[in-house]
Nucleic acid binder design. Sequence first.
DNA 1: GATACTTTGATAAATAAATAACAATATCAT
DNA 2: ATGATATTGTTATTTATTTATCAAAGTATC
Lengths: 217, 217
Amino acid sequence: MAKQGQISSSVIKRLPRYYRFLGELIKRGTERISSRELSELMKLTASQIRQDLNCFGGFGQQGFGYHVRELHSEIGRILGVDRHFKTIVIGAGNLGRAITMHINFETRGCRLIGIFDRDPSITGDKVGELEVRHTDELERFCREQKPVIAVLCIPKAETQEIADRLVSYGLRSFWNFSHYDLSIDHDDIIVENVHLGDSLLTLTYGTNACLGENSEK
Amino acid sequence: MAKQGQISSSVIKRLPRYYRFLGELIKRGTERISSRELSELMKLTASQIRQDLNCFGGFGQQGFGYHVRELHSEIGRILGVDRHFKTIVIGAGNLGRAITMHINFETRGCRLIGIFDRDPSITGDKVGELEVRHTDELERFCREQKPVIAVLCIPKAETQEIADRLVSYGLRSFWNFSHYDLSIDHDDIIVENVHLGDSLLTLTYGTNACLGENSEK
DNA sequence: GATACTTTGATAAATAAATAACAATATCAT
DNA sequence: ATGATATTGTTATTTATTTATCAAAGTATC
């Protein structure tokens, strides 16, 4: 069924988008879709869709297309949306609180079980369902609860140190929002660097290139 | 001086990272660096660095390397960090407020001049230096102030409609945080979709693939 | 200033990714 | 059932990206 030798990261980064579009199609009541129709919707080529999906096995049917509901759940399974990876947030500042409140972790295979901050004055504050704990509690908490994923919303100067500590406490995956390129030597540690600042700079570049350099005003 | 025929987006997406690393080097007092040294620091090949930089002109010096300060300012100029693109935030919920407070727009060529929300009960609230305005004021505000960039922190269902409105008010660039693939037919409109949810799903996939499918617990 | 190094910029080669092509196989209308 | 049509999965081709190579040109040392 699966033929996952080694999937290229280009393909993997497209999977969540397929999953999202298929979810929308289910909401609309669409039951089947061909790679051509989906390609028009998603603005990419039918060829690419077929090739991407085929990395994981033949979900389609010749002369018919794909069953939307079935394909959606297959991709969901591949992504791991049905998992419940225990997840903690480090840093309860503006960004940490916003991510905690704004992202639906449950539908993405993650279960939020704690949020931490080193500032004692906010210990005990509520962030949604969670209560902010002090970072001094991190080690004991991790030994007991064994979280797997950490969301890092802390200043760049502290990121490497905290990440190394968390690795020693058994965490394996990092969703890193600090303006710092986290990299960890262990090869079974996963890091997803977000870099919002870089994203904005890309937009600035595009805006600058598009509006021209003279239209300052 | 510049030889910017058409720079590939792969190269452009690496520019902010070069800029960031060079900024760190300046802080450390490093005055010169070779592509080899920089490649070790950034974990990519020296060849790629030289080729990337050469898209924009020869900033280096044979037998010497690159002047850190000079290269930093050249890349900054290319990115447009010295611009002051007027920028507004749409949506003053958790995420909108966090982005407004957390991102340094000024150092990235953007000047925040307004934040809007459709909920009248938060009109007038302070977000940093800014006061939340009601979306009813959007049109008048845009006609008067002529902002160029909009940061969209609104539910996906409203995103396309608001974006189209903003285009008609003269905005040209969108930094889109809603879980929706914004695309606009105009070809001189720039969109940078962030998709935090997709980013988390990619991490879930990696975690799932790495820990194996059986270690549920 | 001659010699041994170093390092760029440019070109060539290798690798990766996206697209096109098409046989095989299904559907659909009659 | 039959023939016309549709659509996949797979392989071939094209395009894009990354990496390697190397002459040319600078630096550093004596």
